[in-house]
């Protein structure tokens, strides 16, 4: 905590060309503007939120455990829990979204599999590929703007 007289507050002054009376208004507007200009992005925190949300439920943790050992169809999983097929299906969707399991159609069955290492590796590689394309499109935009 910083105590002491006003000079600390006046530290703002060096590059502030407004008069002292309007300083706080300028400051407040800056604080308001910054969050609105931040582009919506899926941060690491969002990914972590999804992961913890997915693992916060006992049934979902059990599905992860079972599908780590061997793949299961959604209907086979549904028979293991005292709940509807639709309810189990929803749990699988949450796990899929968090990247903990993958779901694949095989004939009429939907096969659920957990391969965290594979999924994790693919995600890391896709992150790198995304950066390659973001840079490439940055150049694409610059050359296009000149033409």
């Amino acid at each position: 905590m910083c105590q002491g007289p006003d000079p600390v507050v006046d530290g703002l002054g060096a590059d502030t060309l407004v008069r002292p009376g309007s300083r706080s208004i300028t400051y407040n507007r800056m604080v308001v503007e910054i969050p609105t200009e931040t582009p919506p992005q899926r941060s690491d925190d969002d990914v972590a939120d999804e992961l913890f949300h997915a693992l916060a439920d006992a049934t979902r943790r059990d599905i992860v455990r079972r599908t780590m050992v061997s793949e299961h169809s959604v209907s086979a999983l549904a028979r293991m829990y005292p709940m509807s097929f639709a309810a189990v299906q929803k749990h699988v969707v949450v796990l899929t979204r968090a990247g903990l399991v993958t779901k694949e159609a095989r004939g009429r069955e939907q096969i659920v599999r957990c391969d965290i290492a594979t999924v994790h590796t693919a995600q890391r590689l896709l992150d790198q590929l995304e950066q390659v394309w973001r840079d490439r499109l940055g150049r694409f935009g610059s050359v296009l703007a000149e033409s």
């Binding site: 999924v119 693919a122 896709l126 992150d127 995304e130 394309w133 694409f140 935009g141 610059s142």
Partner: peptide
């Protein structure tokens, strides 16, 4: 140029990037 959407699909190993 603005990147407006990026989708990563680790199950199909596909990156989809949309720009304006």
């Amino acid at each position: 140029m603005t990147v407006t959407d990026v989708q990563q699909d680790p199950t199909t190993l596909t990156l989809t990037i949309r720009s304006e």
